[in-house]
Write a protein that binds this DNA or RNA. Structure first.
Lengths: 111, 111
DNA sequence: CAGTATCCTCATGGATACTG
DNA sequence: CAGTATCCATGAGGATACTG
């Protein structure tokens, strides 16, 4: 997407937040990592449709934004684990109302 | 942006919600309309940078999604007013935590 | 395994002219 | 005023081959 930044009240915050979750797979990644840390290959499988290139790119952006922590284990074969930072967990929590809204009003069978 | 839909818990709701606010200017429009109904030309001015084409397009999408109400007054010169529906107001409310998160963690001077 | 490096496609949005 | 119609630019993302 890419949201526009304008001065004033909440919107700056929303725009800033949107820029962080802007990326086709980021919310999926956030949600997947909420459960537990995952390796690169796991994420590929758990988020069907992402290409390696894009997965790596979006993980790096999330890392840069302080949402995701990347830990490299010096093993053979190589192993890298991605996990949510505290900030990332907060973000996920902040997304819940939006998810609830969507589930309630947009999904076919809102429980 | 265009977020991916996958089955499971909250994410569907989030994906659905994201698809509704997906569009470069939609959140700005939402926020602008929160204050009071606005005419097309007002929105052009209040949301600097949008072209007429895109403004019209995104307003229509929001209307289709039930977020925005479009009212045509049969006057000369023509007058059309856009306002938030109840659903749109709910959406805005659901976006608040996200905005707060962004303001708190991403903006330079978080009050 | 966990990524780069390339190349390519296509949708979103920008600019502008025109109309009811 | 409130839009459409048209044409064009850009960049995010997809596919695939290759590497440390």
């Amino acid at each position: 997407m890419a949201v526009t930044r304008r001065p004033g009240a909440h919107e700056c915050g929303i725009a800033a937040a949107m820029s962080v979750i802007d990326g086709k797979w980021k919310v999926s990644l956030l949600w997947t990592l909420e459960q537990r840390p995952r390796r690169f290959g796991e994420l590929r499988r758990l988020v069907p449709g992402v290409s390696e290139k894009v997965l790596a790119a979006q993980l790096r952006e999330l890392e840069t934004d302080g949402i995701v922590h990347r830990e490299v284990f010096d093993e053979v074969p190589p192993r890298v684990e991605y996990s949510l930072t505290a900030l990332g967990q907060d973000l996920n929590a902040a997304l819940e109302p939006l998810g609830d809204w969507g589930a309630k009003h947009l999904l076919p069978d809102s429980a």
